[in-house]
């Protein structure tokens, strides 16, 4: 390097950059690992599955390799009525969410309860498992933890899926993939801001609301309403259906793109969707030649539209 100054400079450069990394990476990580997961954080992790962007199990972002969320109104084994409970069903081979793979990220108390009382350590991806979120006490405080219902209650994925119909199943994990793939988060944030937004968009997320979720897709450029609590503001599946098919059906000034292509070739009844005909009729409607717009087809059970609607309605 020829000059002594360059040697000193190179070392100072290393020190400066190292110090900046220490402050911006290492020190925050000490705070972040201490965060105990909230109930919302646990549920998000369980319903979304392992990772929400590109992954080995789902390279083309079709929503494969994701758990199912099932609403149970009766015990799947005994058949007796119970308080409705969300069960997160990981069929055999579906990768577990990070909270199960690395219980440490749930934070101290949640980790202990989930391992000891919830017996999540006994779950294996090979056999599959069913998880629920339960309430417990840790150091005198009421906290939520993950319970491996396959171990504690004998609810295997097969038992659950045989006891419910498609109406009780929510494709939330796959729906998150649609949310990421279709770029909903380029306009819709998932981050009501702390300084305002409370009245319309609801409470900002709390510290432990994210553990085990990836990508968080908070969004940065809000061109449309925040969606973190959209399911609480608007729980109409019908409205969502029309809005996704053509937003101008329910909101004439909307600049949202039409997501009609998520319906796929056929509707819920198996009839082929004639998009050209629909658009032609819609154009007649906007031109004032029809009184009513054409009906929006009901999305098929396995369509991407259904998954996305499941995801959005579940943002509560």
């Amino acid at each position: 390097m020829a000059f002594r100054e360059y040697k000193i400079g190179a070392r100072l450069f290393g020190v400066a950059l190292g110090l900046s990394m220490m402050i911006t990476l290492y020190m925050p990580s000490l705070n972040i690992v201490e965060v105990g997961s909230t109930e919302m954080g646990l549920r998000k992790g369980l319903q979304y599955g392992r990772i929400g962007g590109f992954s080995v199990e789902d390279p083309f972002l079709k929503g494969e390799g994701k758990p199912l969320t099932v609403i149970l109104k009766q015990d799947p084994r005994s058949g007796e009525q119970i308080e409705p409970v969300y069960a997160y069903v990981y069929k055999s081979g579906i990768p577990f969410t990070s909270a199960i793979r690395h219980p440490r990220i749930m934070g101290k108390g949640v980790e202990d309860l989930s391992l000891d009382t919830g017996r999540i350590g006994e779950a294996t991806e090979k056999a599959g498992a069913v998880f629920v979120v339960s309430e417990g006490r840790w150091q005198g405080k009421k906290i939520h933890y993950i319970e491996n219902a396959t171990a504690t209650r004998g609810w295997t994925p097969d038992v659950i899926m045989n006891s419910v119909t498609d109406a009780d199943v929510r494709y939330i994990g796959a729906g998150k993939i649609m949310f990421v793939k279709e770029g909903c988060w380029w306009c819709h944030t998932l981050l009501p801001e702390e300084t305002q937004d409370w009245q319309v968009f609801g409470a900002p997320p709390r510290l432990g609301d994210f553990n085990s979720e990836s990508p968080t897709a908070l969004g940065s450029d809000r061109k449309a309403p925040d969606l973190l609590h959209i399911g609480s503001r608007n729980s109409s599946r019908e409205w969502m259906m029309m809005h996704f098919f053509n937003p101008r059906l329910v909101q004439p000034h909307s600049i949202m793109p039409r997501f009609d292509y998520l319906w796929g070739p056929a509707d819920a009844q198996g009839n082929t969707i004639d998009y050209d005909k629909w658009r032609a009729e819609y154009n007649e409607y906007t031109a004032g030649k029809r009184i009513y717009p054409p009906d929006v087809p009901e999305p098929a059970a396995n369509s991407e539209a259904r998954k996305l609607i499941d995801f959005v309605l579940n943002l509560k």
Partner: peptide, 28 residues
Amino acid sequence: MVWIVLLVGNLPEYFQLTGLTEAYLTWW
């Protein structure tokens, strides 16, 4: 520096980091 930034900033994808770590590293 950009090599280091690309290496560290994408850790969430290599190691499936989640939550606030992922959100913060995205913006880092």
